[in-house]
């Protein structure tokens, strides 16, 4: 619908990465229907992720998890004014083409769905729509950025309500960035080899001390305290998947997580936000999940 003339350019790295900049300090919530999307918007979510089953249900029900029905996604787009994201399978570039044609604002190439390609991720430079991808460490994050990801999220272990893996991933990414910044320039070549990441991106991270794109946290966040923990660990914002709508009081928990993400350094606000929320999602300890069933291991 843009009616501009002249020097206008769409789908540039700057507008893709810039979109993620606007989400910072916010909470992106998984929603499976219009009612949940409205609850999320009313609670102050900065975007919603439209999907048919939250990760906890995908985990419980098993089977192959795929892109959601376009009808379901478009109903949610029509219901809310905030950005709408949708997930596609790792490497499934046709699902991505379909989602892009719906005018969705961001694609999550997600390990929560069953991968379509166990070798390659999507070539994200081929799309106007921006992509967010999961990462467990710096090398993985930089490989995704090299493929065109405009935003990175730590993977955590989705659908568990156990924040420990998200913590590990944030510490790993942060630690590897800090290590690069302390290296001599002539050591960065080997660092790039060890990270299995392109030298140019490694050098950029070593110089700036941060990823070239926005870094959110995802996977296992279930409480306002979890959200604030990730923000204090250096996340730019948080994704909450099953944690809200698998809890006793989604509207209040959603609002509380939004408050906690903004006031993550204010323990008084966090205490108030944590009061009277009812039952959190029951959750599963990551250690109890057999390794082949761990979603964070997907992606390469």
């Amino acid at each position: 619908m843009s009616q501009n003339t002249g020097s206008e350019a769409t789908g540039t790295a700057r507008v893709k990465r810039g979109m993620a900049e606007m989400l910072k300090g916010g909470v992106i919530m998984d929603v499976v229907n219009v009612e949940q999307a409205k609850i999320a918007e009313d609670a102050g979510a900065c975007a919603v992720m439209a999907l048919e089953r939250v990760p906890a249900d995908i985990r419980a029900q098993g089977g192959v998890a795929r892109m959601s029905d376009p009808d379901m996604i478009q109903k949610i787009q029509a219901a809310v004014s905030i950005p709408v994201m949708a997930k596609v399978r790792i490497g499934h570039f046709v699902e991505a083409q379909i989602i892009e044609s719906l005018g969705v604002d961001y694609i999550d190439e997600s390990e929560v769905l069953t991968p379509a390609d166990y070798t390659n991720h999507i070539d994200k430079w081929n799309f106007k729509i921006p992509f967010v991808c999961g990462a467990t460490n710096l090398g993985e994050a930089l490989r995704r950025i090299n493929e065109g990801a405009a935003m990175i999220r730590s993977k955590g272990e989705a659908g568990t309500g156990d924040v420990s893996n998200a913590m590990t991933h944030m510490r790993t990414i942060g630690g590897e960035i800090r290590r690069l910044t302390s290296m001599r320039e002539d050591e960065l070549y080997v660092a790039a080899k060890e990270l299995q990441a392109p030298y140019a991106l490694v050098k950029e991270v070593a110089e700036t001390g941060k990823l070239p794109v926005v870094l959110f946290t995802a996977g296992g966040i279930a409480t306002p305290a979890d959200a604030a923990l990730m923000m204090q660990m250096g996340a730019d914002g948080v994704f909450i998947g099953s944690g809200i709508f698998k809890s006793g009081n989604p509207a209040e928990r959603a609002a509380a997580c939004v408050k906690a993400t903004t006031f993550y350094q204010d323990a008084k606000v966090l205490a108030d936000a944590s009061r009277g929320l009812g039952e959190a999602m029951v959750g599963i300890n990551v250690a109890d999940i057999p390794v082949p069933h761990r979603l964070a291991e997907r992606g390469w």
Binding site: M1, S2, N4, G6, S7, E8, A9, T10, G11, T12, R14, V15, K16, G18, M19, M22, P83, E100, G103, V104, D105, Y106, K128, I129, P130
Partner: peptide, 23 residues
Amino acid sequence: RQVDSFESDLKFNGQSLHAVFIR
């Protein structure tokens, strides 16, 4: 929507400027 987000040159108060428009 986001796929229509764009960069463009424009005049701001008579001065040339490269501007980024996002949603």
